[in-house]
Nucleic acid binder design. Structure first.
Lengths: 140, 140
DNA sequence: TAGCATTGTGGGGAGAAGTGGGGAATTAGG
DNA sequence: CCTAATTCCCCACTTCTCCCCACAATGCTA
């Protein structure tokens, strides 16, 4: 389970660290993918990613659908691992997709980790908070 | 299992490299075919190709159908292998079919690899992503 | 308060991988 | 049988990746 919000610098080689307790949960390997629908990078553990992709594949009704789905899911995913002191390299296609410059916001989101650009994160979190408080007001 | 999205240049001799990762999985030989339904080149391992063609043959209901199918599938397929530093030569017919100029996008799509022209890939992936996020919205 | 451990940040260097091109061997066509 | 074109093996250069080490800042401990 992933928690919290952290800010890191992207160094000249495109690397970022992850919070130490995220590392522990991801030590068996991780998968980087496009955040579906949002302009961010999604990080999954191997197990979680497999579970997710299988579940998605079940939803494809036709072979053509399945091909496109595989393209969207696998084509945008990169497996990665920690190098040296626990940093990962952000693949260029994903970095461009998420509009990441030299600072990232790393966010724990329950079953996955999300990596946002500074500019992408601010509007996202404010509207998400708004929505959350509405849901809470309606009774939890 | 094939992952990720990579961009490569086609050199003057019509060769492209494949990601080291993919090479290892295809070292026993590979088959190039037209992407069924899409304007791209599909790359299969020998084993996967055999599995696929057997499956297709089962679906052919009449001998005439089977002949046509065989023509369409085997007639346009090329077996290839890695030469020198791990590059493959793109057969001219397939190259024209996929509209490939001097840059390709190599995409891992689970059980196969796809080779796209730059111009063909962009619209395909955007609509594929749209479709995927719709499926996600409908509840995973 | 002093010292130690952990963690973020920067960078050097060896090796791998992408790119370009020469030349021998094989094939096709006249 | 000879010539031309294509294929494929090899070599060379450049770029990038990844492993390593170092330093600074922070927080904990004694």
């Amino acid at each position: 389970m992933f928690f919290g919000e952290y800010s890191y610098k992207v160094d000249e080689k495109g690397r970022i660290p992850l919070p130490p307790n995220f590392r522990a949960q991801l030590k068996d390997g991780l998968v980087l993918a496009k955040g579906m629908g949002e302009k961010c990078i999604a990080v999954y553990s191997i197990a979680e990613w497999r579970r997710l992709s299988e579940k998605l594949a079940e939803k494809a009704l036709t072979p053509a659908n399945l091909r496109r789905l595989n393209r969207a899911i696998f084509g945008t995913a990169f497996s990665a691992s920690f190098q040296g002191q626990g940093r990962i390299k952000l693949p260029d296609p994903l970095r461009t997709y998420a509009g990441i410059g030299d600072t990232v916001i790393v966010v724990g989101a329950n079953n996955r980790v999300e990596i946002w650009s500074e500019d992408g994160w601010k509007p996202e979190i404010t509207s998400a908070e708004e929505q959350a408080s509405q849901i809470i007001e309606s009774g939890v």
